[in-house]
Design a protein around this nucleic acid. Sequence first.
DNA 1: CTTCATCCTTCGGAAAATCCGAAGGATGAA
DNA 2: TTCATCCTTCGGATTTTCCGAAGGATGAAG
Lengths: 293, 293
Amino acid sequence: MRFDLVDLKLFLAILEAGSITAGAARANLALPSASARVRGMEETAGTPLLVRSRAGAVATPAGEALAHHARLILQQSERMRGELSRYGRGLKGHVRLWSNTAAFSVGLIGDLARFLARHPDVDVDLQERPSREIAPALRGGLIHIGLLSDVGDTLGLETRTYGEDVLMAVLPKGHRLANTPGAGFADVAALPFVGLTPGNAIHQLIETHAVALGLPLKYRVRVNRIEAVGEMVQAGVGVSVLPTADALRVAERTQVEVFTLPEAWARRRLVVAVRDLQALPEFARQFLDGLGG
Amino acid sequence: MRFDLVDLKLFLAILEAGSITAGAARANLALPSASARVRGMEETAGTPLLVRSRAGAVATPAGEALAHHARLILQQSERMRGELSRYGRGLKGHVRLWSNTAAFSVGLIGDLARFLARHPDVDVDLQERPSREIAPALRGGLIHIGLLSDVGDTLGLETRTYGEDVLMAVLPKGHRLANTPGAGFADVAALPFVGLTPGNAIHQLIETHAVALGLPLKYRVRVNRIEAVGEMVQAGVGVSVLPTADALRVAERTQVEVFTLPEAWARRRLVVAVRDLQALPEFARQFLDGLGG
DNA sequence: CTTCATCCTTCGGAAAATCCGAAGGATGAA
DNA sequence: TTCATCCTTCGGATTTTCCGAAGGATGAAG
């Protein structure tokens, strides 16, 4: 079969080294073998892949395309090797899990850590994906479990509520707002603000609503670690807004006040979904049991 | 080298067929060859991959993991073959492009169609990704061009403005709001609404701001094609909100009124980014020239 | 213009991997 | 007990792959 993994590895080695000669050496092949392999690939593709010159070889556009895919394939193959070798050393299973961003803030990390501690012989492959990609992946059998927002299309999947993503305000200790009945986002947004770095989904949600209220947030500082938010607020730099789980953790470690935002947009239902509970492997079901426990 | 493509194909064939015997036949191999390959894979992995029984063979958890990766690898390899065969038939280049959702509404599809028509010998691989994934992919050389929101991290990339994603209101012909100076989203959100299907990013943005205004949208109907929105509005079902490009196209084909929403959140700047303009292949630069032209 | 170094290709035989048919268990149903 | 089905093992044949040696091609150096 043409385009075996040796072919792909060799081709990348040639591009990196700049010549077939040097690439062959890197791939532990004799020069004639490398040359023959390249010729074979070019015959199969029906187009030149390398431009040979006095100084060496560079890729044609077709060669670039080949290299692009070769990198992806070899990377995937490397990941596979790694996983399988762990099975050889006693691993019992691999839970494949996709989650939207929100679920990370609702205790997923905690559940995950607890599960991994209790089941040292089960690995978890967790990836963050938009909700709308998760349902098709479940249907196609690509993953075992999905955590997604319930506004998406979950037809034909088995689901149960995982949690709610509710935002909380974080204030310096003793701040008057903490004991003000009826306080809401508008009150918080009017104060100096400790923000997360742009691109963060929660940040964007908050920003959006602040602008909608005609209250553009007054950022004193922007940080990219949740813990840093707590320290900044504690120091009196400003106030902030975090998902419940993060806010409570921050409240444990630093001297701050928190309260739940009453606005409807601060609350989103998250569901855990599987294609077929019966068909789920044992280890995946164990993981499911630990979710939200 | 262990785990060549024949191995992977064979393994999937065995799982589908339910036995090594039948899988070997599907993979055009004699039974002993298949058996030897499976044994070789198991030795390399250091763990059983199949449970043999009287009735056939089923995968162990390790085997499931292998199958998972095998599917991905073979799929990628198939895509590579397809691309390369097109080069054999005269293809000159392949532009790899990731875009966030918003850019689809700002004429990207039009630019794309125009480019493909003018350059029949260049293909475009367009994928929709969140903005925050695009910059790293550019830096890593995974893609040629990225279209993303400028709130993200574009440090070290060459960028220029591509367009703005501005939302417009869509109203039935002759609706009074169309000629009301100072009309805004609050006026529109108070009317019966023609919505897009949940999960759509624009839909979520609109929903968010409606709730923030204390005006939960009154959906008469939800559709998933832009054209259908125009027909619904024309029929007097309700009003809607669409990106400028879509709104104008709808206005051409159906009898509706449109006006731009004045709110700040309805306006987002989009940029086109590359890692290094100099190093860009010729065909990718041509594509770049056509963007926003 | 000649020489030389570098890079690639071609050729032929050796080594290795792969394949297949035949024969030999193992296992559960009849 | 017999039989059918599925898997494994064995030995030889075939095919693939590899490498060293020899042979262009090309541009730089003398």
